[in-house]
Structures are given as C-alpha cells and as structure tokens.
C-alpha cells in the first residue's frame, strides 16, 4: 500500500536517493570511509516489518546490529535511514551518505555520521511505536509465511535467510553425492517463519538447493502457522515440530529428518538417500 507524502518530502527523498546512488556508483575504496566502531555490521533481519499509519511499508529493509544494540531501517519510501538506538531508547536519522552497504549484505554507519534526534520510541506488547516523518510508525513482527513457498519467496519475506544462506559452507563431498543421485527425489521442508531455529536451518537448505545441480532432486518449502496444528496438511502429515524435512523417492516417502538432524542438511540427505 502506498504512503501519501508532501512534495517537499518527495524532493528530499529524490535528493537522498541520488546521494545514495552516488554512494553506490563511486567505489567505496575510492572514498576514505572509516566505519564507526560500534554502529557497524548491521545484518538484515526479517523478523520485523515497518508499518506507517497502519500500512506495511513494503520497500523497507530492517537491519539489526547486536553489537550496537540498534536497528537500522532503510527504504525508498523513507527520506533517510532511521536508527532505533535501544540503549538510548531514541530514534535518530542518519544521512544516506553515511551509510555504507557492504558486498556481504551487511551495512555500516561511517564514523563521522551525525545522528539527528527524532524522538523516542515506545514499547507495547510486541510493537515498537515511534513518530517518523510526521506519521505514526510501528515495528512489529511479520505475519507468518504460509503454504508452499520457493527459496526466492523465502528470501523476499526474510532477507536474513538469503544472508545466512550465503554464509553457510556446505560439505562439497555430500553435495556431489546428491548431484549423482539418480532417482526422482522430492524434499519438502516444513518450516515456521516465526521459528528461530528454522531461521538458522532453512537458509542452509536454501544454500544446498543453490549448490545442487540435479534435475531429479527437487526441494520445496511449506510454511506453517503457530500453532502448527492449525494447518490441515501438517495435521494430516503428522508434523510435530519444525523444521521437518519429508523425503520422497519416486513419489514414496522414504524418511524424515527434523530439528538437529538438519544442521548439515547436505550430509543428512546424502546419508538418507545412500541406500534408497
């Protein structure tokens, strides 16, 4: 849903977007960019979404730095990046020019960045409320991703999945075994986008899917609500926890892996399929 903004803020946004583009166009090494010692290493987090005046701001990407105990919100619809500093309980504006996006997907704030105070935030239940550009803004948990999904949809819903997938180092020997597997295989991953452990394990499966080059092997994802028993397919399939992988060979279920068995999915799947 779109947000209505004044011409002045549109102008400001255009300027900031141009400035941000300039940052991208000029290689970071060409400019002396000393990174702040605390406000650095912001990683994308897909747990939360930004709402303004009751509508979700689709383009907003939320980053989190544990080290800085802060959240950084970037988005085309914002005139500048917004920092939620939990230690000071304040909301601050940062110039686009002082935000550096790194190749690994993380974001740093430069050491000479000025933080323009925008007020404080209030906490209520599972919502963080603050004023942003004259509107009521809320950071709240994202609703769960339900039903059949692709890896692309997972990454879009939660950019942290793609970020963590890139970090994962799969065992090449086990990936090679899966590449050589000849039977028609389908792996369905039941997950909860609200489940922290799924947030660590599903990205590994996504990385595996990216690495496997075998037309016989198909991986699909199925998002469940909380509680899981609300989903009829989960009930029918007797899914008792997430993440759970159900493996089918030639259309017949040959086994299941769940929880800790999926910490190295390529090895677990290779072992399971070895004698099938």
């Amino acid at each position: 849903m779109t947000q209505h903004t004044s011409p002045r803020s549109s102008l400001r946004r255009a300027f900031c977007t141009a400035a941000a583009l300039a940052c991208v166009v000029f290689p970071s090494s060409a400019i002396a960019q000393q990174v702040d010692s605390i406000f650095r290493g912001f990683e994308p987090t897909g747990e939360l979404q930004l709402e303004m005046n009751g509508s979700t701001v689709d383009g907003a990407v939320i980053y989190r730095s544990h080290r800085a105990a802060s959240y950084l919100i970037l988005g085309d619809q914002l005139s500048s990046p917004v920092l939620l500093n939990i230690r000071s309980q304040r909301v601050e504006r940062v110039s686009f020019l002082k935000v550096k996006k790194n190749d690994d997907g993380t974001v740093d704030i430069l050491a000479d960045a000025a933080f323009e105070p925008m007020g404080s935030f209030k906490l209520g239940g599972q919502e963080v409320r603050f004023d942003l550009e004259g509107q009521k803004a809320v950071l709240a948990p994202k609703p769960p991703l339900l039903g059949f999904q692709t890896a692309v949809a997972l990454d879009k819903h939660n950019p942290a999945y793609g970020f963590k997938a890139e970090e994962y180092q799969a065992k090449t020997a086990d990936v090679a075994k899966l590449n050589g597997y000849g039977k028609n295989t389908r792996i369905r991953i039941y997950f909860g986008s609200w489940c922290p452990v799924c947030g660590r394990i599903v990205p590994r499966v996504m990385k595996l899917q990216e690495l496997v080059d075998n037309d016989n092997l198909d991986i699909e994802y199925y998002g469940l609500p909380s509680p899981m028993s609300d989903d009829p397919i989960a009930e029918e399939q007797k899914i008792r926890g997430v993440p759970t992988a159900v493996v089918y060979v030639d259309g017949v279920e040959v086994g299941r892996l769940n929880g800790s068995e999926l910490t190295a999915p390529e090895s677990s799947f290779a072992n399971m399929l070895a004698d099938k």
Binding site: G241, T244, N258, S260, L262
Partner: peptide, 22 residues
C-alpha cells in the same frame, strides 16, 4: 554439547544444543 538433546526423532522432533547455537 551436541549430546545435549531433547525429544526423539521417533516422536517427530529432536533438537540438540548444536541446532540452537549458531
């Protein structure tokens, strides 16, 4: 720490500490 586990695969879910710690 991978010996610290709860649940069982037979019951539909086993989770160990190595799945909790990133």
């Amino acid at each position: 720490i991978d010996q610290f586990c709860a649940g069982s695969s037979e019951e539909g879910m086993q989770v160990c500490m190595n799945a909790i710690l990133p």
